[in-house]
Design a protein around this nucleic acid. Structure first.
Lengths: 404, 404
DNA sequence: CTGTTAGCGCATTCAT
DNA sequence: ATGAATGCGCTAACAG
């Protein structure tokens, strides 16, 4: 029923090997025979059997792209960009030539699913894997990932990180593109400070993710540099520019099931015991939650309850910032007159917020495309395997000097 | 180097066949031997060879999900939802059991790439394919799609349409979930009419897509029913409730390269020759463009130039509506006091627009999940193979009665 | 440049 | 309930 390579060979009056060579285009074949073969392929409407091909060649044309949440444009943009470099432009015939099959795998942010997808990809003998998004800072999971990736790597799968720090023990076989989340976070808060803000609330992402930690660290670096919210020298209060620290100083080792919480403070602690100038004060002005709109909304309400005198709110990303804006407005306050709000990522909708959102632009498309090229081996890895991608501060209408 | 099923068999002191049976769980195996086999698998860190398995079994565990633009949450939400039903919950071990590999393929709206991906999936002997998004109304492409899908279908691949009308000659083998775009479009415009609007601009999507046509038809149905913008009986002006019509009455058969245009009108035709009451008048109030923000912005400027007296603008979707809002504001007009704006889809950000966007809610997540279940054979196809999914009108702050 | 020969690793008969 | 044998369709040496 199904037509095989042998059928094509018979019709073209050549050997199966020749047909294979024509199809893969890796060996010299006479133009005339190539013609005959291609015609036979068209006549018979032959489609290569991928599994058989992969089995024989011990490699497949699958490339996996792992994302945390494909419904989030942050990932959609990167994944789509990567796919443009991998899928090939198509020759317009729909015949599918040498292009690879770039597939996006949605982990939902779950470590288990991340590992499962990696196994599935390993099973398929994937040619490459692109890992996007913040890594989870759980030692156990990190170890499992390191082991799994090592296996993939020495099965010949190329590993590329995109917008994600490489694993501590990462082999030299991998390339990594990481965003300057810390620098971006720092510049954003510096901007607010320069406007005159002194009490700034921070709606952070899930505590166990590297992205969350880096952005928050940048924020606190800026505060500390300005002498805000930390006592004097403030030594021992975390190591902002040090290497990966599994757990932050707030000791939030376990993932927090609750939507919004900083894990320790009781309710009603407005103007709490911690005097300004202590790290505790900064922690009180920080609320963690998932990277979604609802979290931004609720966290902001909580923040305003804890500290009604904040003059600015920095959100972990633009989506969260949108929720923050809604909460601010629902409390009857105006942006930016009564309170400034800022985001991170500069997703397409951010410029359309009213007022337009001050944020930090990450070149998501460019990074995704570059990761795709790296995965295809079309581009050489950066020196040292790691490239840091700059983040650009975008100052727009949602931030202004505090009133008075 | 790489451990195979035979190695596992040797270590477990059973035959390869037994290992295969344990792994696939389709045949009875004694509990004790199963234990031994599983332990050997763990000890050896064995990972099934997907290609070999697929070759022998003549089917793979790949499921393809085709989307137009993965950076658009419209597709991201559906695709992510489908994947939740396909990827399996994961057993927490990262070992990957019987779950399938759900892969998202980004066509970028290109017919060629759509076909190419289908070929790639056919090559892989995919277990199922989910097609999302509006179809392209090009007879040639439709024929190619029909042929390709027929081949996939009788190679055993399950075909599911999601938010997309089935092909004219669609086999009974496929299931289709289609959104009530026409009904949603009609109710939305009815809402505006009931508020008192009479001159309503329409920013449509690309003319060659079914989604565009259906939404526009619903819009015009409502206008006609209210006696707006069409002369009397208006027969011969398209067949809104008829079956698929390849080309609309505006004869826009070829895709339009320009970002924004209705394909025929010259510039500067404000208050043009067509008297109100003709179809030409409606066409003058309609501008086509891609489904993106920029198009919404530019099309709206064009609309306001052509007809400064419009009191409401309906956009093809929420993203376009956001661009429309920006354009309206940049012209110094307020929403909804000076002009009402409405969208379609109810994407997550729509409720955060200021004012919140009146739109038509499509249950994207639910539809995607159902499509995923259909693709897995977990759910029976709807009677007749086609289910129409209702669209719900969401009235929010961006629409209000016209001034005066 | 082209044909011949062997497997690739597994699922599946058929036996037992 | 388990083992032995066969072939899925293709690529990769190796000849020629």
């Amino acid at each position: 029923m199904t037509v095989t390579l042998a059928d094509v060979a018979a019709r073209a009056r050549v050997s199966p090997a020749t047909v294979s060579r024509v199809l893969n285009g890796n060996y010299p074949v006479a133009a005339s025979t190539r013609e005959r073969v291609l015609r036979a392929v068209d006549d018979l409407d032959y489609v290569l059997n991928g599994p058989a091909s992969s089995l024989a060649a011990a490699t497949s044309d699958l490339v996996g792209i792992l994302v945390n949440d494909i419904a989030d444009p942050f990932f959609g943009i990167m994944a789509g960009a990567a796919q443009t470099q991998i899928g090939g432009p198509g020759d317009g015939s729909g015949r599918a030539g040498g292009e690879k099959l770039a597939v996006i795998c949605n982990t939902g942010g779950s470590p288990e699913r991340e590992l499962t997808y990696l196994t599935l990809l390993q099973r398929q003998r994937a040619a490459a894997v692109v890992l996007t998004g913040g890594a989870i800072e759980d030692p156990e999971h990190q170890a499992a990932m390191t082991a799994k990736l090592a296996k993939l790597a020495d099965a010949g799968t190329r590993i590329v990180f995109c917008g994600r720090p490489p694993l501590p023990e990462g082999d030299a076989l991998v390339a990594a593109l990481t965003f300057d989340n810390r620098g971006g976070g720092r510049r954003l808060t510096e901007h607010l400070i320069s406007l005159g803000h002194r009490r700034i609330g921070y709606v952070a992402g899930p505590p166990e993710r590297t992205t969350t930690r880096h952005r928050l660290e940048g924020h606190r670096e800026a505060l500390r540099a300005a002498g805000i919210g930390f006592a004097g020298g403030a030594e021992g209060a975390g190591t902002p520019e040090g290497p990966a620290v599994p757990d932050g100083p707030d000791g939030s080792g376990a993932p927090e099931p609750a939507a919004v919480s900083d894990g320790s403070e009781g309710p009603g602690g407005l103007h709490g015991p911690d005097g300004p100038g202590s790290l505790g004060e900064q922690e009180r002005l920080t609320v963690h939650g998932p990277y979604d709109r609802r979290s931004g909304y609720e966290a902001t309400l909580e923040l305003l309850r804890r500290a009604p005198d904040v003059t600015a709110i920095v959100a972990a990303n633009d989506t969260v910032a949108l929720g923050a804006c809604a909460a601010v407005r629902d409390q009857g306050m105006r942006i930016p007159q009564d309170i400034s709000v800022a985001g991170f990522d500069d997703l397409p909708f951010s410029v359309d917020a009213v007022p337009a959102l001050t944020t930090v632009r990450l070149p998501l498309f460019e990074a995704g495309a570059r990761a795709g090229r790296l995965a295809m081996g079309k581009e050489n890895p950066p020196p040292g395997g790691i490239a840091t991608i700059a983040a650009e501060l975008m100052i727009r209408g949602s931030t202004a000097p505090p009133r008075g």
